[in-house]
Nucleic acid binder design. Structure first.
Lengths: 223, 223, 223, 223
DNA sequence: CATGAATGAGCGTTCATTCAT
DNA sequence: TATGAATGAACGCTCATTCAT
């Protein structure tokens, strides 16, 4: 079953009443905890239902399959990421701080987006079979970030083309290191995750700034 | 429940006849393809046996469990990595080329180690529950690389302590970017993977060189 | 590997609804028939489920393993034995009939306990790997019987010590002959088993009475 | 698969050469040990072959199935029993010792026949699915013993009919108690089994003598 | 709407048996 | 004849999913 969705993945019932909405919340919260602890394969729908204090029948009332729950969880994460990154990017566009500060703030935002619940995000982005549609949404988010970053770089002495490729790479790198350093090295979430993540933020920022500086200078490596 | 190994993971029968050896090869080859295509969870021993053109009984003659196949595959990869990286490191130690060339050759080696079969390596290092012993071997390989790289940096104006921390980080980063850029972006293996991977090699090298340069200067980012 | 219990053997779900209770009954009834006909080894959970007209999943809903079914069946038998023997022993203690009548009634009770379903009991006590706990319960039942019988003998001219050893032996012998004569000789249960068993009751009683008489006299056999 | 033989159970090749004969012996010896230790179900043909130091192919050269080995083992036991019991019966017929001595010697023979390897005999007669043919042979042996014993009793004041029924019962009882007391109570064979078994011999003899005495007197139990 | 008993395809695995060498 | 690699039916068991209540 590689990445493919063969069954309904959208939530079933658009919950209109407050009670239903609460049930959905309780299921998703339970699922987040169970997926984070047990991993994708070892998580069973019955587990999730039990943890949520809801009958298995009710769970299937709202989510047509195990994967649908995972998709809903992922969508929430992407929603949040869009919101947070949009906010930061807007602020940076308005305030126009020095490049190192801009980069650091962007990286911090990305790291914090994942550090809050590393276990869950590991499952979401490494173990789970996400449907193509969601993967596209994630890709789109990255493209958007890259475009915004390119505009930012334009204001710091990069020419248009330079800025575009450098920004695209930077986004990839940030994503990549975030996953590596945060998901694998930071212990199980818990309080204090924000402080625990800060060294990673600095190091990743340092890396990106070094790269961008070289790029702006038009540097190239000898083959 | 990742990382846990509860059953025998060593190959069962030390194959003595040529026929058996061939069977082992055919099973591992099939398993590599199935794991790469279907992912860890969706790979079944029956699929592997069928793909290998071997009865399920024969598969279990040589591998006591699904995970044992995975372990064997991983060990082959680590064996190869140790061999290749050792060779390159030795060559660099002897030839003492400029830093940018050294870094580029190391990165190229790492990238090529993974680019040959990206799908498989994604499964091996992201999805699969590797036993502690193997994880240690991998960690040891990284430690060794970092040490070798630190020696290299020592010959390029880094002081001892600087070299150690920078090397450790650089290895992490190289690993990380290799996985991200190579495993996720490079299409399904096939011929021409070497050429397809080269831009990644350049970009990762550029990134590392920028980082190392900053480190050598003792630079720090404003918080 | 007899006697070993490695997995859960207690029933899984305490059935709360009437429907579940019926399912449990139907499974146990089917299992009794299948075990009796096919023996322990040849009985499969799928056979039992099929015979019960229940899906294999339902079977495992209530019993975590094949052995758990066996244990449940055995416990029912031991429950019944405790009840019946307790009742008879109490009656004998109250009525104080002549020894031969007392022995005969005890033997009849034991024989009837097994004659109702000889095939099943053969499996239960000869073939099956019962967990230690259950074996203890059975042993306790025998100890209790021996104690009660010793008291009875005390009222028929045995001195204390004589009564104890003779009673212990008598219980062993009764058990043994019950199994041999009833389980192996009486045909497949069916109606009329009570009448078919009666000659055995008489003969076993005769044997025990002869033995007890000799014991009381303090007789010994020449080596 | 209850008790029924669906495949060939006779040894395949009547081994004429000394080498083959030795192979058969070595297989049977290994099988006896493995069956005794592991029980019927847990004994695998590969185990037996390995223990015998013979390839699995060779094992199947001589025995067409797992059960065939068991049958061969059983037949050896029955052969031995016929021989031993025949010898003792003949001696008793010639010497005409007192009844208690005769009974004791018979019982001792039966007990020793089983006490030598209790584990194996438990498997042979309780766990294993013996084919009808063998069961008949065993039954025939018992019939023969009963007839011989009846003749013996005829010489000790029993009338013809009395002797016949008493002898039949006595044989059943001896068999039964032998299995119960010897197989279940005597520890795992080993040296000293002969001494360990002697108390059982005495007790069983005592029991039978009490019974026979009552029978000769024409005693009956009140229903 | 909620419940939870019931379902059954499919999994990983074993082992008696065959047959090419 | 002897070998042991290969076979595959069958097993015990799980869990995502359905549906009668």
């Amino acid at each position: 079953m590689p990445t493919i969705a063969k069954k309904r993945l959208e939530p079933r019932r658009k919950p209109r009443q407050a009670r239903s909405q609460a049930t959905v919340e309780v299921i998703l919260a339970a699922a987040a905890r169970v997926f984070a602890r047990a991993g994708y394969a070892a998580t069973t729908t019955n587990h999730v239902a039990a943890k949520a204090g809801v009958s298995i029948g009710s769970l299937y009332e709202y989510f047509p399959s195990k994967d649908a729950i995972l998709v809903a969880l992922t969508e929430r994460h992407v929603d949040e990421a869009e919101r947070e990154l949009g906010r930061v990017l807007a602020a940076l566009g308005a305030a126009r701080p020095p490049l190192d500060e801009a980069i650091t703030r962007l990286v911090r935002t990305m790291v914090e987006l994942h550090a809050r619940d590393p276990g869950l995000h590991r499952v979401l982005f490494e173990e789970a079979p996400l449907p193509a549609k969601l993967r596209e949404r994630v890709a789109l988010l990255e493209t958007g970030m890259a475009a915004a970053l390119a505009r930012l770089l334009g204001g710091h002495g990069f020419d248009r083309e330079e800025a575009r490729t450098a920004a695209a790479m930077a986004v990839q790198v940030a994503e990549s290191l975030t996953h590596r350093l945060v998901l694998h090295d930071v212990g199980r979430s818990g309080a204090g995750w924000r402080e625990a993540a800060e060294p990673h933020v600095r190091e990743i920022s340092l890396l990106l700034l070094g790269y961008l500086e070289r790029k702006r200078a038009g540097a190239a490596v000898r083959a």
